[in-house]
Design a protein around this nucleic acid. Structure first.
Length: 435
RNA sequence: GCCCCGGUAGUGUAGUGGCCGAUCAUCCGAGCCUGUCGAGCUCGGGACUCGGGUUCAAAUCCCGGCUGGGGCGCCA
């Protein structure tokens, strides 16, 4: 039988009725009624029905009803109009080729009437991903990432790929994975931060990367991964962090908007997307502390927000009509060394929050090498570890800034998903290293 | 790193000391059935995380291992 597929399930039109077609996919279910059997075949776009009659061809009938579920088959047959079948047609088989027989029982049911636990599902992720609702998450992810490329390219950003194996130690703030690099030791990059900044010294001006973050923190929560992805961006010749925030909110808006256009996937998930309105509210850190103290929080000036404070602030802002808001003008001590200070104790760092969860974090950066060294030392880091990075600041570095925007965190908020592991194909967490 | 909780057929569960040679559903297998689409019906199959201990008696209580989940910190 060649080729294995002339049509996907959902691509058959009324024009194909009465014609011979070839379909291929996974056997989702077999309903054998006795002299007639219905085989539900699943492909990338949906499901279709193959209807086999015992009296038409006993051999073909027996072959079909004895195929284990989730086997892969190709069926050549008549595309017959039917108002009793899904998609208004059914395939009356002439020829059936079994391409792969599934073992039984399945480690995880695709359409069983019992739910499985996340751990079982992740152990058998390739089967889990056969479910249309699980696929819908990644179909939306795919479309939203396409929107990222379109938006940023339209804003004259240049896509780059920076190393994940790096020599210099941490930027600070998190644990990093250590690994052997021949006779040297190396680390997995916690983010492309230092590299995208170095690229600001090249004249490329605006760069972005769909980046991997590797974090060696031993956290065990629903919203942390040890390997995650982000939209990481850096732009030169900015006047202030406000220029960066404008790009970020434009990006977030176009991602939400694109997600809202994924009607089929959203229907499958039973979710609605609320596209935010621009511009997002800006709240300065000082006001955030005042708001929180007013509501009874004990947080003191200078402290970073804990998850409890973030949630409380989310509620306060919700009441004021804001799902999305920037927290700006953070105290310099709450931000990493490369953040541009402002006045004596503030910084040009900001976070973007969505309903009480931090989804992006950015700032104007320091572009003066002496100030940068001072800040590295003030953060108890050794400027010797950053020599190749600092070198890029010595021969002409324009003012610049950028942000990192976590893709899985974004999907959690977008689709109201409770566990971040649902948002990445093969999650790496504290204990999971396979598959 | 700190703290809390769990582990019963392939999957998901009921079972808090004897009524458990373990419940129900799903699943798998055999059979019946010409319009199923959560198909239906009959029959059958399959499990107490591991190692110690307490007890006349342990799935159930205690200790340890393994393993999973969640919270905090940190962050995306």
């Amino acid at each position: 039988m060649k080729p294995y597929r002339s049509h996907y399930s959902k691509d058959v039109t009324t024009e194909d009725h009465g014609k011979t077609i070839t379909v291929a996919g996974w056997v989702e279910d077999i309903r054998n009624i006795g002299s007639i059997a219905f085989i539900i075949l699943r492909d990338k776009k949906g499901t279709l029905q193959v209807t086999a009659l015992k009296k038409e061809c006993l051999e073909l009938f027996e072959k079909l009803i004895n195929i284990p579920r989730e086997s892969v088959i190709a069926v050549n047959g008549l595309c017959k109009k039917s108002d009793k079948a899904r998609n208004d047609y059914e395939v009356i088989p002439k020829e059936v080729e079994v391409l792969s027989i599934s073992e039984t029982p399945l480690p995880l049911g695709v359409v069983d009437k019992v739910e499985s636990e996340l751990d079982t599902r992740l152990d058998n992720r390739f089967i889990d991903l056969r479910k249309q609702d699980i696929q819908a998450i990644f179909k939306i992810r795919n479309k939203v990432i396409a929107a990222v490329h379109e938006y940023l390219r339209s804003e004259n950003f240049f896509e780059v790929h920076t190393p994940n194996i790096i020599a210099s130690s941490s930027e600070g703030g998190t644990e990093v994975f250590k690994l052997k690099y021949f006779e040297k030791s190396a680390f997995l990059a916690q983010s492309p931060q230092l590299y995208k900044q170095m690229l600001m010294a090249t004249g490329l001006d605006r760069v972005y990367e769909i980046a991997w973050y590797f974090r060696a923190e031993e956290h065990n929560t629903r919203r942390h991964l040890n390997e995650s992805t982000a939209v990481d961006l850096e732009m030169a010749f900015i006047n202030s962090e406000e220029d960066v925030m404008k790009i970020l909110e434009g990006l977030v808006y176009s991602m939400w908007k694109r997600a809202d256009e994924c009607n089929e996937e959203l229907d499958i998930l039973g979710k609605k997307v609320v596209v935010p309105t621009l511009p997002f509210k800006r709240v300065i850190y000082d006001d955030v502390i005042k708001k929180l103290n007013k509501k009874g929080s004990e947080i003191k000036w200078g402290e970073d927000l804990g998850s409890e404070e973030e949630k409380l602030l989310g509620d306060i802002m919700k009441k004021e009509g804001h799902d999305f808001y920037f927290i700006t003008k953070y105290p310099i001590e709450a931000k990493p060394f490369y953040t541009m200070p402002e006045k004596d104790k503030y910084s040009r760092g900001f976070d973007l929050e969505c309903k009480g969860v931090e989804i992006a974090s950015g700032s104007q950066r320091i572009h003066n090498v002496e100030l940068l060294k001072k800040r590295i030392n003030a953060c108890n880091l050794n400027s010797k570890d950053f020599e190749s990075y600092l070198k890029a600041f010595r021969y002409g570095m324009p003012p610049h800034g950028g942000f990192g925007f976590g893709i899985e965190r974004f999907l959690m908020e977008l689709l109201d998903i409770k566990n971040i592991r649902e948002c990445i194909l093969f999650p790496r967490d504290r204990t999971r290293l396979t598959p």
